[in-house]
């Protein structure tokens, strides 16, 4: 299961890299992407959420650094 997921991810990444030239927009087509709400991360909400889930679950990071940072209980 794990090796299959790794393979699938590698294939998707390669296809994306290979197809990058065909994807995307011209600079004047960035009206929607340039909006603040289209940013991939809301720094404040993410930082607060990461602290909660880091303290309560066995996983952390992925989107950004998992890090250490607290002796949370």
């Amino acid at each position: 299961m794990l090796s299959m997921m790794k393979t699938v991810f590698a294939v998707i990444s390669l296809v994306l890299l290979g197809g990058c030239a065909g994807l995307g927009v011209q600079p004047w087509e960035r009206d929607l992407l340039a909006k603040e709400e289209m940013a991939l991360t809301n720094a404040i909400d993410s930082s607060l959420d990461d602290h909660i889930y880091f303290s309560k679950e066995a996983s952390s990071g992925g989107k950004s650094f998992g890090g250490g940072g607290c002796g949370c209980n």
Binding site: L17, V25, L33, L40
Partner: peptide, 8 residues
């Protein structure tokens, strides 16, 4: 890796 797919 971050990729813009299209305008949306």
């Amino acid at each position: 890796l971050t990729q813009v797919i299209n305008r949306r």
